[in-house]
């Protein structure tokens, strides 16, 4: 079983950081909705506030790792210019997609949207984490601040979802492959 170095980076970006972020979003939305209930006891409220702070900070770290690996590691491989007249475009995903009318929109709509909308995710969730850290348990006393944190967290989920969906579809139609080959495990021939 082998994987290319570029394939491994794509896997870390999408299935590692990105998918984990999307999974974490549901937990964050539920936790933030729970904060709208009547206040628990002091000790519970302090524990909940600490949990929410660290949870959102972990999400922010995931969001930044996702966009930074996507923009500065994988995107350059995706958009690399193919030499003129090259018949096999499999190492040049953007050129491969644009070469056929049936796949061109995956680039002109999918990648063009994904590459920008994805950046709303770290902006939104960093704000949410900062507010949770600043206000801790007193966030319960600021319903409008909680509402803003909830809305921005939900929008971060939407933007990450758009980026994740198009990332998966782009990788299906024109995978980013190449670089050195990593042997994951030896297989038996049948």
């Amino acid at each position: 079983m082998e994987i290319s170095a570029r394939g491994l980076w794509t896997l870390m970006h999408g299935m590692g950081f990105g998918a984990l972020y999307l999974l974490a979003c549901s937990g964050a939305v539920i936790e933030l909705r729970r904060w709208n209930r009547a206040s628990d006891g002091n000790e519970t409220a302090t524990r909940d506030a600490a949990f929410l702070k660290w949870y959102l900070m972990a999400m922010a770290a995931l969001a930044w790792m996702t966009v930074l690996t996507g923009t500065y590691v994988i995107y350059p491989w995706y958009r690399a210019a193919a030499p003129a007249g090259l018949a096999d475009l499999s190492s040049f995903p953007q050129a491969l997609l644009k070469a056929k009318a049936s796949t061109a929109e995956w680039h002109s709509l999918g990648m063009e949207w994904k590459e920008h909308v994805a950046w709303l995710t770290p902006i939104s969730i960093t704000m949410a984490a900062a507010v949770a850290a600043r206000y801790a348990r007193s966030l319960r006393d600021h319903p409008q601040l909680r509402a803003a944190v909830l809305v921005f967290t939900f929008v971060s989920f939407l933007s990450a979802g758009v980026a994740g969906f198009f990332g998966a579809m782009l990788n299906k139609h024109a995978p980013v492959e190449g670089g050195s080959t990593i042997q994951v495990m030896d297989g038996e021939q049948h």
Binding site: I123, S124, T126, M127, A130, V131, R134, Y135, H142, Q144, L145, A148, F152
Partner: peptide, 11 residues
């Protein structure tokens, strides 16, 4: 609330 408002508006 100003600190939170600053973070929200800036985002």
């Amino acid at each position: 609330s100003g600190s939170g408002a600053a973070a929200i508006l800036a985002a």
